[in-house]
Design a protein around this nucleic acid. Structure first.
Lengths: 193, 193, 193, 193
DNA sequence: CATGAATGAGGTTTCATTCAT
DNA sequence: CATGAATGAAACCTCATTCAT
């Protein structure tokens, strides 16, 4: 078991430093939701009650902070897959997990868009998505595809990105809109010519 | 069908002014594709070979420029609908038009995202989309829905936005990816439980 | 008798040109009163219904326009002096003329301040004041001073400037305030130790 | 009488920050005197030897800087009143204080004009004047008016503004000119019909 | 002569990032 | 380690003035 250099995964560290990190993560989550992932750093540090220097110490890149904010929720989402797979048939398990994933994204206004940023700093974030969620979804998808219920020409990565796109907020539309459109997309997986 | 006050649609105007407007539209199209709709104004004016003041004279709001860049293509897209409707059956006409719309968006990297900006200045752009493309799509959609080939609980507006979302570029993926995902969404329109 | 090159004093000139000049003077008077003498040129030309080039043709310097706007009123003010002198005693004639001058300034919000601009272009304006109004006031003042009713150590120029200062608008105060303060100043002219 | 949040009145603050604030105030005083209160921000920061950001950090509004530049001198002026009142008779105390106030304004070329700006940001500055200097002058004025030496229909506010107007620099005139005119105004306070 | 389009300097303001304290 | 002051590049937008039409 190595040490993990990520700020989000504590090693031995002074208690106050950890408190600051937690406060920053909490603040970033709030601010990202309200003002998007490009919100001014000061907005986050003010809410967290720390100086900007503290932010830069722990999260030198903006993407580090975004990734850290999401990691816990990404993990939770990935870990939900096995239970669903055990409790439901292939199609239903897949559907329920995609619903879970959709909800996660739909409540993270502004974060989903970070996924599509062309800033190379967010490459790590996309990597996290694929690394953590890819296998979880792939297992469900393979099973459903093997059962013949789902078209075989769509990959886990395809779906992860497509749903992320569909979950971006549309001004004038409620999140329910995004959920509906994702449902149509999922129905498209089942369609046969 | 007389005079159009939009800078994109010349009425009586000095020739050199019109040349500048055209140069700006051309430059904006290029820059938007490369750097997104929030690209610095100077980048556009330098490419167009004009001063910044000229940009602000003709397009006081950023959204004015974006709208102007798109308008011609939006119009062309909307006008394609009747011919398709006449030449094909309901489902095929709809599908072909959505393909047309998808291609239009897919080649406008960065412009599609303007649709989802929360900046109120882009409200007009969304309005253009709905005004121009909404009726075109609605006609096709109604026919297909009446023919029982398409689920009735999805509106033209729903589709316009959803496809716009799916057409946003994903780093590491080719435009073909977006086209594939749109196809899945369209298949979802045909799915029956 | 030479030709007068000033745009305000017509020589032989095309009728439409004169119309433009008149429109500009009228517009400038209005705009200066509302937005001060530093108002954007376009505000004036729009109100006058002419192009900016026309403004610059007739009034190359901003001060040329200001001066022209004032000249007619300055002249009228100066010409009021002899009548007052004939009709009233020294002190009363002086007082009445200063009242006249004060009213003129008080209704020209923003113009008075041009008098105190350090921009050398307004030197001509100050010159106009002294040339036109100086002798008018000097005559009244001399008489009153000779009659022993007014302190002798204040010159016409002193008074012209001081009253102009006191006539500048004070935010939150009505023009009546300025008139009251000028009255106090005038009383100071009569005071004896 | 504890802590003052104004940048001009240091509480606990880093020494270098305070040095910058002082440098800015000093520079602003100089630049305001030379170029007026509307001088470009860069002129001030260059003279102070700091970046523009530093100016905006400490003085987000232009009026904040103007107010800060004046506050110390305003305070000193206000505090001079009681001593004068104790040492002199009513009329003389008033006169001497007005001389003091006049000198203060006369040496602040360009600052006095800020008092008359219609920019709402300068409302605070006018407020400072009234809050700090109003009571000081009112006390002197009341006494002198009660003693029958001064006309009763002029308020402290009236005088503060009127003198500020008279202290604006007139191109081509020395500050002595302004002092002389103020003296005439003060004499006007004593005049009886 | 009149027009108004074009220019671009000039000002403001914001904010990511560094680094002295 | 934490702080937040300082920096200054970068972007915006305005408007006086020129000059092609």
């Amino acid at each position: 078991m190595q040490e993990n250099p990520s700020p989000a995964a504590p090693r031995r560290r002074r208690a106050d430093a950890q408190r600051n990190i937690d406060a920053l993560l909490e603040a970033a989550k709030t601010v990202f939701a309200g003002s998007g992932v490009d919100a001014p750093a000061k907005e986050i540090t003010d809410l967290a009650g720390v100086g900007v220097g503290t932010l830069y110490r722990h999260f030198p890149q903006r993407s580090d902070l975004v990734t850290a904010v999401l990691r816990r929720e990404i993990d939770a989402c990935a870990e939900a897959a096995p239970a669903l797979s055990a409790a439901h048939g292939p199609d239903e398990a897949l559907t329920k997990w995609l619903d879970r994933y959709t909800e996660f994204l739909a409540t993270k206004h502004g974060l989903a868009s970070a996924l599509h940023s062309d800033d190379p700093a967010f490459e790590a974030l996309r990597g996290s998505f694929l690394t953590q969620l890819g296998p979880a979804l792939a297992a469900l998808l393979d099973t459903a595809q093997a059962a013949g219920e789902i078209r075989p020409d769509v990959s886990a990565k395809d779906l992860l990105y497509a749903i992320a796109l569909l979950c971006q907020p549309v001004p004038g539309e409620e999140p329910a809109y995004n959920l509906r459109m994702v449902a149509v997309l999922i129905d498209g997986l089942r369609y046969r010519t």
